[in-house]
Amino acid sequence: MEQGTVKWFNAEKGFGFIERENGDDVFVHFSAIQGDGFKSLDEGQAVTFDVEEGQRGPQAANVQKA
């Protein structure tokens, strides 16, 4: 798993971006967030995640709040 920081996340649209430790950004969809209840992330929040190849390039999977 990688570690990163939430760059931004739009809860209304259900997606955002995580900044990886290497400085690259990776797309995150709310469906990739682990846990119960409303799935959202806060700007600046530390997270761990896997990276999978999506239809439009790399995207975060198995996102967990650190």
Rank of each mutant, 00 (worst) to 15 (best):
M1R: 13
E2I: 13
E2H: 15
E2Y: 15
E2A: 09
Q3I: 13
Q3F: 14
Q3N: 12
G4C: 02
G4Q: 01
G4I: 01
G4R: 01
T5E: 05
T5N: 09
V6T: 06
K7A: 05
K7M: 04
W8R: 04
W8K: 04
W8L: 03
W8V: 03
F9S: 02
F9M: 03
N10T: 07
N10M: 06
N10W: 12
E12Y: 14
E12L: 14
K13A: 08
K13G: 05
K13T: 06
G14T: 04
G14A: 03
G14C: 03
G14W: 02
F15W: 15
F15E: 02
F15N: 02
F15L: 05
F15H: 06
G16M: 01
G16T: 01
G16D: 00
G16E: 00
F17C: 05
F17Y: 07
F17W: 08
F17Q: 03
I18N: 00
I18T: 01
E19C: 12
E19V: 15
E19R: 15
R20V: 08
R20K: 08
E21C: 12
E21I: 14
E21D: 13
E21S: 14
E21Y: 12
E21P: 14
N22D: 11
N22G: 11
N22Q: 11
G23A: 11
G23K: 12
G23Y: 09
G23I: 05
G23E: 09
G23L: 11
D24G: 12
D24T: 15
D24I: 14
D24V: 14
D24H: 14
D24S: 14
D25N: 10
D25V: 12
V26P: 00
V26I: 12
V26L: 13
V26N: 01
F27A: 02
F27S: 02
F27T: 01
V28E: 00
H29F: 10
H29S: 04
H29I: 04
H29M: 06
F30P: 01
F30L: 05
F30Y: 13
S31G: 05
S31Q: 07
A32W: 04
A32K: 08
A32D: 06
A32L: 03
A32R: 06
I33D: 01
I33M: 05
I33A: 02
I33G: 02
I33F: 06
I33P: 01
I33V: 08
Q34M: 12
Q34K: 13
G35W: 11
G35R: 04
G35F: 09
D36V: 12
D36W: 10
D36I: 11
G37I: 06
G37A: 07
G37S: 07
G37K: 06
F38I: 08
K39L: 10
K39D: 05
K39V: 07
K39F: 06
S40N: 08
S40L: 08
S40T: 14
L41Y: 03
L41K: 02
L41A: 03
L41S: 03
L41T: 03
L41M: 05
L41E: 02
L41N: 02
D42P: 08
D42S: 14
D42W: 14
D42C: 11
E43Y: 15
E43Q: 15
E43T: 14
Q45W: 10
Q45E: 13
Q45I: 09
Q45N: 07
Q45R: 05
Q45G: 06
Q45F: 05
A46Q: 13
V47D: 00
V47F: 02
V47Q: 00
T48L: 11
T48R: 11
T48Y: 12
T48K: 09
F49C: 01
F49S: 00
F49L: 04
D50S: 15
D50Y: 14
D50T: 14
D50F: 13
D50W: 13
V51W: 06
V51P: 03
V51C: 06
E52N: 09
E52K: 12
G54N: 08
G54K: 08
G54A: 08
G54H: 08
Q55H: 12
Q55A: 14
Q55K: 15
Q55I: 14
R56A: 09
R56S: 09
G57E: 03
G57P: 05
G57M: 04
G57D: 02
P58N: 07
P58L: 12
P58R: 12
Q59G: 04
Q59A: 07
Q59L: 07
A60H: 00
A60Q: 00
A60P: 01
A60Y: 01
A60S: 04
A61H: 10
A61Q: 10
V63D: 01
V63F: 01
V63W: 00
Q64P: 01
Q64K: 12
K65G: 08
K65A: 11
K65W: 08
K65F: 10
K65I: 14
A66R: 14
